[in-house]
């Protein structure tokens, strides 16, 4: 039994776009656009996340719509992320070891998107729930992906055991 399950969902189709005209362009494409920076909405088979002020990540079938020719002030962003879902009872403990952001303080109701670093790797993170368990969706540049996945698995693997009492450890 693993305390945290980490699933690779990189194969889900996704696309990105940024620029001052991006929000309006997406709306014109018929996509719901999150109003506030760093929030997300779920859409048919996926989600749309607003990354900061003027960048968007669309995941799921709707991402195909972003193949439309960009308008003025709209800059397509090729997304080649490693995408992960980490879920489990002890997710907070995992996060506490790799990230300085207080995820517990974020109300999931506000649908927050967090652009931060975890274990030294830049990530986009969305706290969520998966079948009643705390979960986190994560995207990172795929060139960091292999190392990042391996590191997450290592840290999570050690969480399965309580921290051992090691008398050769520190003492003062």
């Amino acid at each position: 039994m693993s305390a945290i399950n980490i699933a690779d969902v990189s194969r889900t189709p996704r696309a990105g776009v940024k620029g001052a005209g991006a929000a309006a362009w997406l709306a014109a494409l018929g996509l719901p656009v999150p109003d506030a920076p760093n929030t997300w909405l779920s859409i048919e088979g996926g989600l749309i996340a607003r990354l900061g002020l003027a960048e968007f990540l669309v995941e799921g079938p709707a991402s195909a719509k972003l193949a439309a020719p960009p308008a003025h002030g709209v800059y397509p962003v090729l997304r080649q992320d490693t995408a992960l879902v980490a879920a489990g009872e002890r997710l907070d403990e995992l996060l506490a070891e790799i990230c300085s952001v207080d995820f517990q303080a974020l109300g999931p109701a506000a649908q927050p998107v967090v652009l931060t670093t975890m274990a030294g790797v830049t990530v986009v993170a969305i706290p969520a729930e998966e079948s009643g368990m705390p979960a986190l969706r994560l995207w990172c540049d795929s060139t960091w992906g292999a190392w990042f996945c391996q590191t997450l698995a290592e840290v999570a693997g050690e969480l399965i055991q309580p921290i051992p009492t090691n008398h050769q450890g520190a003492t003062s």
Binding site: P37, N38, G52, L53, S100, V101, V114, L115, T116, T117
Partner: peptide, 8 residues
């Protein structure tokens, strides 16, 4: 835009 974060 992103709020308070560690300076790193």
């Amino acid at each position: 835009v992103n709020g308070p974060r560690a300076i790193s």
